[in-house]
């Protein structure tokens, strides 16, 4: 079984091995850790999603965003339809190779504390579209934070994923999220 899995975010952060920016100057001082804590607390309850909906999972996205399961309870209700105003990229549905440059462009345009949520098996691994036309998992293009399986996932699974992402965001430091453009785009190389 050949499964190629790109580096996860943690691995990438470890392989980079060095802290950037403000942490380089101040280190892990009390001031910075407390500031981190409060900023992360604010961030984890105010995701602004950009729904990149390409396929049938969109229906399930509507059901989880609607009043029945209500993403607003987790502070992630408001979809922004401009990537520049969003910080959580929801990749909902199959990404074909034709669609891939658009996805990368949208990711590059997003403002910097940004997270990526892979919604459904097609975005996670290509699902049963194991063919020449489909990207085998969006983590071959952009760094992904949470994978939610299912075809389509139940709203409960999506909420599980969102809670996992909140856990991750709560522990983040300044240097943790991937900066700059995606590695596959030209400038990122």
């Amino acid at each position: 079984m050949a499964i190629n899995v790109a580096m996860s975010n943690e691995q990438r952060a470890m392989s980079a091995g060095q802290e950037e920016g403000i942490e380089k100057v101040l280190g892990n001082s009390v001031l910075l850790t407390q500031l981190d804590a409060i900023v992360d607390w604010g961030r984890k309850y105010s995701f602004f999603l950009y729904p990149f909906v390409t396929a049938c999972c969109g229906m399930e996205f509507m059901s989880v965003a609607g009043p029945r399961y209500d993403l607003d309870r987790f502070g992630a209700a408001l979809p922004r339809f401009s990537p520049r105003q969003a910080d959580l990229l929801m990749v909902v549905g199959t990404i074909s190779h034709k669609q891939a440059p658009i996805l990368v462009k949208v990711y590059n345009q997003m403002t910097e504390p940004k997270w990526v949520f892979s919604f459904g098996v097609c975005a996670t691994s290509g699902g049963f579209y194991d063919n020449y036309a489909t990207v085998q998992g969006i983590d071959t293009l952009i760094p992904v934070d949470v994978y939610v399986p299912g075809c389509p996932p139940r709203p409960e699974m999506v909420i599980d994923g969102l809670l996992k992402l909140q856990e991750k965001v709560a522990k983040e430091k300044w240097s943790d999220w991937p900066r700059g453009e995606a590695l596959v785009s030209k400038k990122g190389r």
Binding site: V5, S8, S125, Y147, V148, P153, R154, M157
Partner: peptide, 14 residues
């Protein structure tokens, strides 16, 4: 069962 299927790492989904 449908809970706890979301993961942060794709390797853990095998």
């Amino acid at each position: 069962e449908y809970e706890e299927l979301a993961e942060r790492d794709r390797n853990r989904m095998i």
